[in-house]
Structure formats: C-alpha cells, structure tokens
Amino acid sequence: MTVQQSAPPQARRWRRLAIVALVPVLVLVGVVLVRASGESVDQSPHGASPLIGHRAPALRGRTLSGGEYTYRPGTVTVVNIWASWCSPCRSELPTLVRLGRQWAGHGVELATIDTRDGAVLASRFLRQTGATGLTAVRDPNGMLAVAWGVTGVPETFVVDAKGIVRAHWNGAVDPTWLSREVAAAQARTTS
C-alpha cells in the first residue's frame, strides 16, 4: 500500500526547525571566527599571581648555609625561587646578588627559596655563579614553592613592608622591571 506523502503541517514544522537551527549556527560560526582569528595572544612573561594584593605566604626554614630564616614583614622583600637544575637561574642569580648588594643599604631584603634541590648541588651552584652568601631557604619536597603558587623556576615576588605581595615575575627576572617594582614598593611604605 503506497501512500502519497503530503503532510503540510509536519513539513512546515520541520522546515521551520531546520531554518531555526541553520541561522544561529551560521551566526555563531561567524562570530567565533571573527573573534578567534583576530585575537592576539598576550605572551607576557609577567606573572599574574593570584597572590598579588594579598598577604605573603609563610617563608621559613633552614638555609643552605646552615642557619634558620623566618620571613617577617617590616621591610620590602624580594623573594626568588630557584634551583640548581634550572638553567635560566644561572644567569639570573648573579644579577639578583648584585642588586641585593645595592639594596642592602636601603632596607630592602633578598630572600630565596631553593626548591626540590640537593644541598650539595645547590651550594656548588651558588659557588659557580658567584652567589655565595645568598639567603637560600631549603625546600627539598617543593612544599614551600607550592605555598607561593609557583609553577616553575625561576619566579620572583616583590613583597612590601606590610607583608603584601605587590608584583610577580615568571621566568628570569628583568632587572629594570625589578628595580622599578622595588622602588614602587618602597614608596608605598613611606606613603
């Protein structure tokens, strides 16, 4: 039994459905195309740490030189996370040490975290880069780094005198940027 098919209401319904689906699909694709293709991705190495504007995490422990260090708010502090197996740190540490000597007379402290490292390797690394005398808190199982929200090495934080994190840099730090941020943090203290 063959039935000639003409079901206007059903046909209209499907047609409407198809067009109703077609138009938004085209519009959506068009919008996504235009937005997605024109977007230029920001590749800034500047950090966007969620800690900025909040209290600095705890930083205490044994240092490589054998003493104890506990961070306490009071002066502007630059916190740097490094490791001996990190090659950018090799070029960064001497810069930091030099800046640290410059700051020492101006009440700016430099504290570092040596994360997931062996004491012997780390000490040798410091000797090789001419960075002996650096305050380096040991962090063998990486928990201190995690407390600072660190994802790789090196990273640098600038903390003001009240203990609030003010700036974050991901990667080997640019000394110009660092000097600027330290100055800004100092200004905040005196204001």
Partner: peptide, 21 residues
C-alpha cells in the same frame, strides 16, 4: 564541518515534506 552542517540543514529545510512521518 561547517559545510556539512549547513548543507544538511539546508537539505532538511528543503526536503522536510519527504521525511516519513
């Protein structure tokens, strides 16, 4: 993928009456 989706939807729009109830 866009071509396939658009093509099929257009086809359905045109052939709506021929889809068996």
């Amino acid at each position: 993928i866009v071509a396939v989706i658009v093509g099929v939807l257009a086809l359905v729009a045109l052939r709506a009456g021929k889809i068996a109830p």
